Simulated assay, not measured.
Amino acid sequence: MKIRRYFNRASVAALITAMGAVPTLADEAADGLARATEIIESHRAVPVYEPAGEAFDIRKVAEGKKMLSIPNTSANQFLKGIIQREIAVGKEIGLEVREWENQGNPNQWVQGIEYAIANDFDIVDLISGVNPAVVEPQIEAAREAGVKVFTSHFYDPSQPANELLAGDLPVSFYGQGYILGNWMIYKTGGDARAIVVKSDEVPPTAPLVQGIHDALTENCAKCEILQEINVGITEWGTKIQPSLQSALLANPTANYVIPIYDSMSQFVVPAVELTGKSETVKIATSNGTPFVLDFIREGQVEMDIGESLDWIARATIDGYMRGLAGLPMPKDIGVPYYLFDESNIETAGVPAVPNKGYGDDYVKGFHKSWMME
């Protein structure tokens, strides 16, 4: 995504100066709200599929191949959903896909790569959260054994990928943060006061949180981040709820909580409810995990930036198979963002499912790109 290009405070100021106008604070606030509104409305249309490159016979490339997907933790329902769809898509094209179950311990990631080497896998998929820097000796061993190690949905395009990888499929985490920041501006009319829940140990956290800050800086001088709560992945279940309850009591003017990864919401929602803030504090997040979409329908979460788990699975496999075929890999994973809120949440299914609400043209698009039509 190229969200940065749409609006920039410096360019707006230069335009005003060139026009000979002196903006008032009210003018700046109104302009910022208008920009935020335009950004939000641009993500309400059902996403459109765009091919990642030339068409190729994916079944020919995938035949007899095996892929081991290693999530940062199998407790993360967003990643679990992607891998389930990878397994299903693999069956469509003749690729055997398995998940390496783990509880977020780096030693378990090491064991997963070692298992892939010992069992003649062709691909290791380090999916969203497994930091290649932590397992570099194993990646080197995999390379020597002819096993290609890729990452997907891990790096922001602004971040250089680990040089030992066979390839990577980044996603604009900055863009997610920028949308979240502008959502708060849009919904509060320019009066957002937020608490952000994050995990700094995950490299994509930094650009995502920066996107939130930049949105507020560019489009809402009055808005502010009251507090940032940093919780390690393995501690989400024990620390998010009590930490957030304390933060909400310490910041009584807060009107938003932003759990930057939506699987955090299972611990955020109880914290907001137990502090009696459900009417005054809204929750906006990103990823589009089905159980969080159900929270929207139930009125517990206001908005989730949806990424079709099925679309991510197809785009991931598409990119990796292109790499195996000697074709250029896409510069990013290419999965559009789509906003779910009370106005369209029913389209995600009741209960929500990973691949509903995004239309089905993208499936046809992938089949055409894969010469399956």
Rank of each mutant, 00 (worst) to 15 (best):
A221V: 02
D214R: 11
T253Y: 04
L248H: 09
T253A: 14
E228Y: 01
E228F: 01
N230I: 07
L274F: 08
Y261D: 09
Y261A: 11
G288T: 14
Q266R: 15
R297F: 03
N219P: 01
C220W: 02
Q241E: 15
K222I: 03
L293Y: 07
A254G: 03
C223L: 09
Q241A: 10
C223G: 04
K282P: 01
P270G: 07
K277C: 13
D214G: 07
C220H: 09
S243V: 04
T217P: 00
V281C: 01
G288Q: 07
V257T: 13
F267H: 15
Q241G: 07
Y256S: 04
L244V: 03
N287W: 08
E228D: 01
E298I: 01
I225F: 00
S265T: 04
V281W: 04
L226G: 12
A247G: 10
I260L: 09
P290H: 08
W236K: 08
E298L: 11
V281S: 00
I283H: 06
V268I: 06
W236F: 15
T275E: 14
L216A: 06
S246D: 15
D214F: 07
P290A: 11
V231W: 10
A254D: 01
A271G: 12
V281Q: 01
Q227K: 15
T289N: 14
I229G: 01
L248I: 12
L216G: 02
Y256I: 02
I283N: 11
T285H: 05
T238G: 07
F295M: 11
N230E: 13
A284K: 02
A284C: 06
L248Q: 11
V269H: 02
V231K: 11
S263Y: 13
T275Q: 10
T285W: 08
K222W: 01
I296H: 12
K222M: 02
A284Q: 06
S243F: 11
V272N: 15
T285G: 02
L248M: 13
W236P: 07
L249F: 10
A254V: 01
S265W: 02
I258P: 02
Q245S: 14
S265R: 00
V272P: 15
L293V: 11
S263T: 13
G237S: 09
S278P: 02
P259S: 02
Q266I: 12
T280S: 15
P252D: 00
I240M: 10
T280D: 13
L216M: 08
L226C: 10
A254L: 02
S278V: 10
I258F: 11
N255H: 13
P270C: 09
E298Q: 14
K222Q: 13
T275P: 05
S286C: 15
I229S: 05
S278M: 14
S286K: 05
D262Q: 00
L274W: 03
E228V: 05
A250H: 07
F291S: 12
E228N: 02
Y261W: 15
S243W: 05
T217N: 03
V269K: 00
E224C: 14
L249H: 10
I225E: 05
L274N: 12
